[in-house]
């Protein structure tokens, strides 16, 4: 099973099933996946990508449901990609974010796709970017990406969005401290959800203080109070998000961000490819086995070993080619 032009045809016709199938092929890197991406590249419409992140239990899914409903009402075609962790041991996952979608799941302009984080296999941000790309080509005006906001993998995913919304909820000050790891710094809009709880004011103040301490941001980050369960604060949230979008468009940063993103992705991909190539070389190479054996046995330290390996790889991969060229 490789590239199927008929499938692509159905996708272009707007068939959801075809879109779903292409997402699976690309997500799982099945045979022919690059061809689909290549064919879809010219169909990119520049969908607006909103990343929504935050610790578990703050109500992200419910908030996304409300936000998506608003965006649908405004006439947008909306897609949601929801990332859930997979078991690092079995690779399996239970993806439960759909549960919150309720009635909007049946709106014909709405598309929801769950994505498992693939544990420690890596490739999450590529997979997520690819799904976004496909949904963009499928005709989505706005795409919301939801992650849990822990771990470097998820941070990468979020960085590949245009606007990042960080969702928190009132709690002890420790919560905000604990969340510092990367998330607070990349948020463009903050939502304090379940804002009817005790401590909402304090969380707001702490957040404001922390944001003022961040000198890097040129954009004035807005904080919105929301109650996703009863739908309060959602228009404010939407406003805050769209304001950020206007800022990005107005300053040319949107285009900048997106091109940088594409280049970053290329870099990540080529890195992975190179490492992959080297690793497959090393798999059965005798010299490598010998060096690895020495490190294992404690006869060689890792640094010297790596220096030696690099020399060897250089020789094998690069020099031998040019040698061949020299020989004609």
């Amino acid at each position: 099973m490789s590239f199927d032009a008929a499938l692509l045809g159905k996708f272009i016709n707007g068939e959801k099933r075809a879109c779903a199938r292409i997402i699976s092929i690309v997500e799982n890197r099945r045979k022919g996946f690059e061809e689909y991406l290549k064919q879809l590249q010219p169909r990119a419409r520049g969908a607006y990508v909103i990343g929504i992140t935050g610790p578990p239990g703050v109500g992200k899914s419910t908030l996304i449901n409300r936000l998506a409903a608003e965006l649908l009402k405004d006439g947008n075609s909306v897609g949601v990609v929801a990332v859930d962790p997979s078991s690092p041991f079995t690779g399996g996952a239970v993806l439960g974010d759909r549960i919150r979608m309720g009635e909007i799941s049946m709106n014909s302009r709405f598309y929801f796709r769950s994505l498992s984080s693939r544990g420690n296999l890596g490739g999450l941000s590529e997979a997520a970017s690819d799904v976004v790309r496909i949904l963009d080509a499928f005709g989505k005006d706005v795409i919301i990406v939801e992650t849990v906001g822990t771990g470097q993998n998820e941070v990468d995913v979020i960085e590949s969005c245009d606007t990042v919304v960080v969702v928190l909820m009132p709690g002890t000050g420790d919560d905000i401290q604990a969340q510092k790891a990367g998330i607070l710094e990349i948020g463009n809009v903050f939502a304090i959800n379940k804002s009817d709880r005790d401590g909402a004011e304090r969380t707001l103040r702490e957040l404001q203080t922390m944001l003022h301490m961040n000198p890097m941001s040129e954009y004035e980050t807005r904080i919105v109070m929301t109650k996703s369960n009863i739908g309060e604060g959602i228009s404010d949230l939407k406003d805050a998000i769209l304001s950020h979008r206007d800022y990005l468009n107005g300053t040319g940063k949107m285009a900048e961000k997106r091109s940088a993103r594409n280049v970053n992705e290329m870099t990540r991909l080529i890195r992975a490819k190179i490492i992959g190539k080297v690793e497959s070389l090393m798999d059965s190479d005798r010299e490598y086995m010998k060096i690895e054996g020495d490190v294992r046995g404690g006869r060689l330290d890792p640094h010297s070993a790596s220096a030696r390996l690099l020399e060897y790889i250089d020789d094998k991969l690069f020099v031998s080619k040019s040698k061949g060229e020299r020989n004609g």
């Binding site: 239990g57 419910t62 239970v94 439960g96 549960i99 919150r100 309720g102 369960n229 009863i230």
Partner: peptide, 10 residues
């Protein structure tokens, strides 16, 4: 009063 939706756990 609104309606309740659960966050299921496995």
């Amino acid at each position: 009063y609104g309606v309740y939706e659960e966050q299921p756990l496995f």
